[in-house]
Design a protein around this nucleic acid. Structure first.
Lengths: 136, 136
DNA sequence: CTTGACTCTCTAGACGACTGGAGGGTTTAG
DNA sequence: CTAAACCCTCCAGTCGTCTAGAGAGTCAAG
């Protein structure tokens, strides 16, 4: 019972991934998606792994990586068997950057939770609190 | 032997922090810096904690926070004794986000180092490697 | 008092990452 | 065959984060 997988069109991908159609087209335009070709009518057809890919993109992006950087990684992934030391070094550098980021995030967390506990102690002191600044 | 601290002008801050003068002015403009007033001639004068502040800004920013978010945190810090639950909740949410980010970074690290080890095994297999794609 | 380094404001431009809309082709249900 | 729901390209606009330059004021050294 093997039925032909129906071609995933951009609308379906958008709905399932939660991203706007426009954004997906944009990602495709700048070469992040390696679309699985087009239909006869010229519609983009996407492979099954597009969701993994989109997930990766969004995750990386939300962590401060640019789409250009993301693209590099994806290219490495796509032609995975090209261990040129040039790119390998670049990847290793990126990994170090990421580890630094993790540490920075942990520091930031400390700082913010410092704000919070500072507050809490203030709350304890003042026993009641009203916020005089509510903007928007 | 208490001498008056000399007023830190923007150029000195730029030099010491490594940021361009323009950027610092920009940060001031959007309210990130709470400059310690101006000289008679209209020059910005910065307090000693400006470097801590700039450090915080850059760190947070490099982790994907917007300057608007950074600004919120700094405002909390500046008027630290306002434990209004509205903002407190916001901060807690941010903390959770940050913890998620840490996890995502760890995932990303895994993925990237997966690329790397994938490579390494390929290297082991092919024993020699040349990179056919050197762009720029 | 002049010169040079520094500062100011203001306006405009750049770049990344979208987002909206016009104008038009494709596909499918009735 | 037509209408609705998709999809396409192309072009322009937006938002955030700077960055460049013009024109002008400030300040310390000589």
């Amino acid at each position: 019972m093997l039925t032909e997988a129906p071609p995933k069109l951009i609308g379906a991908v958008a709905k399932k991934s939660g991203l706007p159609v426009k954004t997906i087209r944009y990602y495709d335009e700048i070469g992040l998606l390696k679309t699985a070709g087009r239909t006869e009518g010229g519609y983009r057809v996407f492979a099954g792994d597009v969701f993994t890919r989109l997930g990766f993109i969004r995750r990386a992006q939300s962590l401060g990586l640019t789409l250009a950087e993301v693209k590099e990684f994806l290219e490495v992934h796509d032609q995975g068997d090209l261990p040129c030391s040039h790119i390998q070094v670049k990847l290793e550098e990126k990994l170090i950057e990421i580890e630094e980021k993790i540490q920075q995030l942990q520091l930031l967390r400390q700082e913010l939770s410092g704000l919070l506990t500072g507050w809490q102690s203030t709350v304890a002191k003042t026993d009641e609190a009203i916020c005089p600044i509510i903007e928007s």
